[in-house]
Design a protein around this nucleic acid. Sequence first.
DNA 1: GCACCCATTCTATTGCAGTAGAATATAATG
DNA 2: CATTATATTCTACTGCAATAGAATGGGTGC
Lengths: 119, 119
Amino acid sequence: MAIKLFDSELRVMDVLWREGDTTAKRIAEDLKEQVGWSKTTTYTVIKKCLDKGAIERRDPNFVCRPLITREQAREFETTELINKLYDGAADQLVASILGRRNLSPEEIERLKRLVESLE
Amino acid sequence: MAIKLFDSELRVMDVLWREGDTTAKRIAEDLKEQVGWSKTTTYTVIKKCLDKGAIERRDPNFVCRPLITREQAREFETTELINKLYDGAADQLVASILGRRNLSPEEIERLKRLVESLE
DNA sequence: GCACCCATTCTATTGCAGTAGAATATAATG
DNA sequence: CATTATATTCTACTGCAATAGAATGGGTGC
């Protein structure tokens, strides 16, 4: 399940992740609204997603269903970043973020609890 | 200090981050070795870095010095990722990594201490 | 001061993501 | 059915990152 999704494809996926199974028509309407895409652009990108197995099509009505979860996409992109800039060490990325001090007190609190819950 | 560095540019920067100030000639040699780049490719990319202020040139000898730190580049790219896939919430990214369970016990231990040291 | 070699710049090519218009198929309507 | 409108596909264009060859410049030994 390691598929690179391009930015345009992520836009389509994002609609599906937020709204669940959705007709192509509806996706096109949403993205027209959200990012001004022509509807043919949306259909083209949907096709790319289908071709690479990121979504599947159900008929009638060209209903699109995501086959990749948001978490999978996150993991893929994050791993890519870690390899590109953090020498492949995930904890370096985490350390870097924690060291930035632009986290809110609430975020810190949540993270503390999260880390403690490990193990 | 918010400059987007492309992958090719990051290769040049990486040499500078690892080795410190370095002549263009030497960078070209390194990257020829490491990634098989033609030396003109390296010079072209160095020029891009110069133009966007990521490095500066000292003469004689075309010595390149990085003006952007590795940490700045990391922060930029990481923020980009967070905005693209994590709804702009840094802690979601951290949570996602922590939840992956491909961290070693040592890493977990280090992170625990790190998080606890936050205020 | 000239010829040669290497350093550097200039200019061009390529590949691909992003975008959408033209063409076609399918569904709705009278 | 025939006609129109809408949904869907096909094909093409564009911009730009990546890469490098050709052209130029500058130093060095003779």
